[in-house]
C-alpha cells in the first residue's frame, strides 16, 4: 500500500499531532515501509477466523453498585497545568 503525504496529514490531524514538514516526509516513508511489512498478513487466509480481542477467556467481570468515597478534589487537580474554581481550565470553547 502506497502512503501519501495527504494520508499522513489526515492521520496526524485525527491523532492531534502537528507534524513538521520534515516529520511528514519521514513518516510517509517509514509508514510505507511498516505498512508494507504489515501487508505480509495478507498472505494468510483468515476467512472465517474469529478475531481475538482477549487472550484469556474471562467474561462477566462486574462491580457491585456500592458507593465509596471519591477522592479529595486537591488530589484530582494536583497535576492540572491550569485550574480555576475547582475545575480544570481549558482555552475558551467556541461552538
Amino acid at each position: 500500500m502506497k502512503i501519501t503525504k495527504e494520508q499522513v496529514e489526515h492521520v496526524a490531524s485525527l491523532a492531534r499531532l502537528n507534524l513538521s514538514e520534515e516529520e511528514k516526509e519521514r513518516f510517509t516513508r517509514e509508514m510505507e515501509d511498516i505498512i508494507a511489512f504489515a501487508d505480509k498478513l495478507n498472505e494468510l487466509d483468515t476467512e472465517g477466523v474469529m478475531p481475538t480481542a482477549h487472550v484469556i477467556p474471562i467474561q462477566n467481570v462486574f462491580r457491585e453498585d456500592v458507593i465509596k468515597p471519591s477522592f479529595d478534589r486537591e488530589k484530582i487537580l494536583q497535576n492540572a497545568p491550569a485550574k480555576e474554581d475547582g475545575c480544570f481550565k481549558v482555552p475558551k470553547i467556541v461552538e
Partner: peptide
C-alpha cells in the same frame, strides 16, 4: 460538563 468562566477567558471542566 464544560462551563465558561466569569471573565470569558477560558472554559472550565467539571468531571
Amino acid at each position: 460538563k464544560l462551563m465558561h468562566d466569569e471573565w470569558g477567558m477560558g472554559s472550565l471542566v467539571d468531571y
